[in-house]
């Protein structure tokens, strides 16, 4: 690639969100990445600028897609439930699904597609076993609402919430190898905790996982 091709397409308005920065750290420079649910393309822009990544995106909201394409990113309108089956096996080095799995209709199918399409998959989920959730449910007796999951039970897009331990169980059931897992606090900072342990499941607001693709 020529040096020019790594220039900024559009300068980022803000710094990359902390959890996305951790995702970016897991990605080898120069690789091919599909970001499913790429929003306004923050991660893809960052990867393009800093890691020379050949990135693609998929986004449900038309506003997000249009803004990505306007900024020179390769993004299509689509969603994880319906539009992953087109891709051939190992089409990408990494498939990223950030904070979206809980909003899909068939999380296990989506997960299978991620490890089929990608040589690796990077998945992050909000942890419903976070102590704040537990406390709210315990003390208030109502569906918990937090900054990370602010919706009411009746209007939430998050129809398949799970805990870190639930997610790891699903990976085990699907025989998907978890290469790395990271527990994150409210601000997206990594904890120094065993992410498979009960303490991480209590303290972490999110879990971030690097999964091995199916060969």
């Amino acid at each position: 690639m020529s040096p020019d091709s790594t220039r900024l397409i559009t300068p980022l308005k803000n710094e990359l969100r902390e959890d996305l920065r951790l995702v970016a750290q897991m990605i080898e420079p120069g690789s091919r990445v599909l970001d499913v649910g790429c929003g306004e393309g923050e991660l893809l822009s960052y990867l393009y600028q800093h890691k020379n990544v050949d990135g693609r995106g998929m986004e449900l909201s038309q506003g997000g897609v249009n803004s990505c394409v306007r900024n020179g990113l390769s993004v299509i309108q689509g969603d994880a439930d319906n539009d992953l089956h087109d891709y051939p096996p190992h089409a990408f080095d990494y498939v990223v699904l950030s904070q979206t799995l809980q909003a899909t209709r068939n999380p296990h199918d989506v997960l299978r597609h991620l490890v089929r399409i990608g040589r690796r998959a990077i998945v992050s989920i909000p942890n419903f076993a976070h102590w704040r959730m537990r406390l709210r449910l315990l003390t208030e007796g109502r569906m918990p609402r937090t900054a990370a999951l602010p919706h009411h039970w009746y209007d939430t897009p998050n129809i398949h919430l799970c805990t870190i331990l639930d997610f790891i169980d699903l990976c085990d059931d699907e025989k998907i190898k978890v290469e790395r897992s990271v527990a994150l606090d409210d601000l997206g900072q990594a904890y120094r905790l065993n992410p498979r342990g009960r303490l991480a499941n209590l303290l972490a607001a999110q879990g971030l996982f690097l999964l091995q693709g199916r060969s």
């Binding site: 038309q62 394409v69 539009d83 087109d86 051939p88 089409a91």
Partner: peptide
């Protein structure tokens, strides 16, 4: 997509 081609898609309202 099935060819893992580099593609963008926008539907304009």
């Amino acid at each position: 997509n099935a060819s893992a081609a580099n593609v963008s898609f926008v539907e304009v309202a």
